[in-house]
Design a protein around this nucleic acid. Structure first.
Lengths: 238, 238
DNA sequence: GTCTGTCCTGCGGGAACCCGCAGATTTTGC
DNA sequence: GCAAAATCTGCGGGTTCCCGCAGGACAGAC
């Protein structure tokens, strides 16, 4: 059983390496990669089936790397080990995990014990392990009626990219008015109308305000926007 | 000579502690704080004069913490130790460093040697040490004609917050038209008109597009927007 | 003095936005 | 199968945005 570690921070990488060896004494090689791109390569050439991966790396982040790894071998077991439980990350992961795949999501703030436990659970027992806090975000995101729908989220991303209503309508095969309806719901759900200070009407451009709110609530983050930007270029550049 | 470490990651904190002790054998206590707020408190009550600080922390980030620390004691020596050299960070630091203060900015990717050297230079020799890469960003940001002016940057932030032209005009004591002029320069400098794909006109809402571009170029980042948001609430909520 | 730059400002118009209303279509629950 | 709910769509308007054009204020150069 070989394990691939994809993590850009040297200290964390060393720590992970040690943790993996301690938690899985029966494992074979432990390979390291310092960014998503190299991680993909290693996973491909060495046919690794167990991956510990950071989200938030330069040069292809964890979500993108995981997506391509899973696309090539959907039965790969991946444990995400991240600093944050941003809704954007949670949603990003949820969008790419294949049917029936086993994965885990633990925070770096968790204890070493929890990390080791998660390593064994995911890699040996093939059990999904989702950090308590991440679990909370998941429920708030998907269960609750205040959470954004997938469609709403996609429109939010398009808006954040700077697309026009018309452009979004074309991309999503909707009428202009439908896009605007979606946007209204979005504004409602994000609470864009709540103004800081009193009696301030017309102070906000709802469209950009929505992006600002989404960013500060971590519904969006920079890496999600970058990913979307690449997708856009690809679909437009053809 | 006491040293305060402000860093939210436990591993990095331990590493820093060790590095400080090694680089400054003559130093007294080494105090640790795990976020900006606690760091401010420690600096205040213990009257620390030497601080090593991460940027990007929850619960008050490094820039904000440094601002209040410097406001209370402008001769404090601060070494910023950060993962990134985002233009937003560089600009944020430049805006708060007091006249004649000594500080440093080294990246976490630098070698341990460089870190120790910087510690000695800043704390003992009272010399400013700016990482090579950060230096590059500085020059690209301020020297070059492609970099944003302070005024332009402030307007960009206001736009990113979701304010209307009119609101910005009022805040900045300018006419509506002047704000729009600034915006045009901004669009020009950010290269908002360059479209991915061919023959796509009217695809972008320039305003939100500018924010997207600024984010992906790291001219803005989430923490800069959050800071601005708090300032806005404060000035509007009075 | 004049000339050249840079910045602020107003005017005007075309485009994009936000959104209420109302009818059509689809989905859902029973 | 049918009614209720949710979605999609067009129309029309008020508002904001984007920006070309042009006139004024102020600086420095000659």
């Amino acid at each position: 059983m070989n394990v691939l570690i994809v993590e850009d921070d040297a200290l964390h990488r060393a720590f992970l390496n040690e943790a993996v060896r301690a938690a899985l004494p029966e494992c074979g090689h432990v390979i390291e990669a310092e960014n998503g791109l190299k991680g993909e390569g290693q996973a491909r050439t060495l046919r690794v089936e167990h991956v510990v991966m950071d989200l938030q790396m330069s040069e292809r982040n964890g979500i993108e790397a995981a997506r391509t790894i899973w696309r090539e071998r959907p039965d790969t077991k991946i444990l995400f080990w991240s600093n944050y439980s941003d809704e954007a990350y949670v949603r990003g992961v949820a969008r790419i995990v294949p049917e029936g795949a086993t994965y885990g999501y633990v925070l770096k703030s968790a204890s070493e014990e929890r990390l080791k436990l998660a390593l064994r659970s995911v890699f040996v027992e093939s059990q999904c392990v989702i950090d308590r806090e991440v679990r909370g975000i998941q429920q708030k995101t998907f269960g609750n009626s205040l959470g954004l729908t997938d469609v709403e989220y996609e429109i939010l991303v398009d808006v954040a990219l700077g697309l026009t209503d018309k452009a979004i309508a074309k991309r999503k095969h909707l009428s202009l008015r439908s896009v605007q309806n979606r946007l209204q719901q979005l504004y409602e759900k994000l609470g864009v109308y709540e103004t800081p200070g009193q009696g301030s009407e017309g102070w906000f451009n709802l469209r950009t305000r929505a992006v600002a709110v989404a960013l500060s609530r971590k519904v969006l983050n920079a890496s999600a926007i970058e990913r979307a930007e690449r997708d856009l270029r690809q679909s437009a550049g053809v």
